[in-house]
């Protein structure tokens, strides 16, 4: 069974329709990249999947492991294994990073019928997984994202994803604002998590990230719809010829 099945999804914010019939199937083990120009609806797709209430779904459906995803509250989606890495992670002064994450991990474990992690096991796991993304151990002692640099915030997102072990990871422009070293670190973290029963949807504006996180399928999103899908080579074509070319040649086969 597919992990994610999006069928003819329409969504709007206030009176602006942004997604206009998006269809996408993601199977276990797959890495999907969604590329598209600014304003095409990439981040809206991430927001709708994670359950942001500002967006209203007007048509279509989203199945997650065969269940109606849109019927679940945002926190239920998270406990069911959907993880969104934020484009702009939120700073939460006074909310301890480790206490919050321990609570999140154990909420998910409880939901899966697993015993909560004790303090020592949690700390050990956190130490290992923070190392995966080179996260400075002192950052874990701080408030969530407070005073983190842009790169640290993005690495912290991947660290949280590694801790929560989702079935579906959605990365919303995780590459934006990263220097090449940080990009590599983030990509390594994601690659480390790839497995047969886990899938990813990587949303990006630029092809560069996909040199490090190699997708199985690349989709081009234009004006709220996927206009073209292909292998990893599609990203290179896009990089070379631009989104305008794709809009005009959406129906032609891709050649490199």
């Amino acid at each position: 069974m597919a992990i994610l099945e999006i069928k003819n999804l329409h969504a709007k914010i206030e009176d602006n329709e942004i997604l206009k019939g998006l269809t996408l199937t993601v199977n276990p083990g797959e890495m999907h990249a969604i590329m598209g120009p600014n304003g095409s609806g990439k981040s809206t797709l991430a927001a709708v999947l994670a359950g942001r209430e500002e967006f209203e779904v007007t048509e279509g459906e989203v199945l997650y492991n065969g269940r109606d995803l849109l019927d679940m509250a945002p926190d239920e989606r998270a406990r069911e294994g959907v993880f969104l890495a934020f484009q702009y992670p939120v700073e939460l002064p006074g909310v301890s990073m480790m206490n919050f994450l321990k609570e999140a991990v154990n909420a998910t474990r409880e939901h899966r019928g697993e015993a909560p992690l004790g303090a020592m096991d949690f700390i050990k796991m956190a130490r290992e997984r923070a190392a995966l993304v080179n996260l400075d151990p002192s950052l874990k002692q701080r408030s969530v994202n407070e005073g983190f640099s842009g790169g640290e915030k993005k690495r912290n997102e991947i660290f949280q994803m590694a801790m929560l072990e989702p079935r579906l990871g959605i990365l919303d422009e995780t590459d934006s604002g990263l220097d090449i070293d940080a990009l590599r670190v983030v990509a390594d973290g994601v690659n480390h998590m790839r497995s047969d029963d886990r899938a990813f949807v990587v949303i990006t504006h630029y092809q560069r990230l996909l040199n490090y996180i190699v997708p199985d399928v690349v989709h081009v999103l234009v004006d709220g719809k996927i206009v073209k899908s292909g292998g990893k080579e599609l990203a290179l074509v896009l990089e070379e010829k631009g989104y305008d070319w794709i809009k005009e040649h959406a129906d032609e086969p891709v050649t490199v």
């Binding site: 994670a50 359950g51 942001r52 209430e53 509250a73 945002p74 926190d75 989606r77 998270a78 406990r79 993880f83 969104l84 934020f86 992670p89 939120v90 939460l92 909310v95 919050f100 994450l101 609570e103 999140a104 909420a107 998910t108 939901h111 969530v144 949280q160 929560l164």
Partner: peptide, 13 residues
């Protein structure tokens, strides 16, 4: 946005 961030990690509202 802060509430949503925490919920997106599995904490109830």
């Amino acid at each position: 946005e802060a509430i949503f961030y925490l919920r997106s990690r599995g904490l109830t509202e």
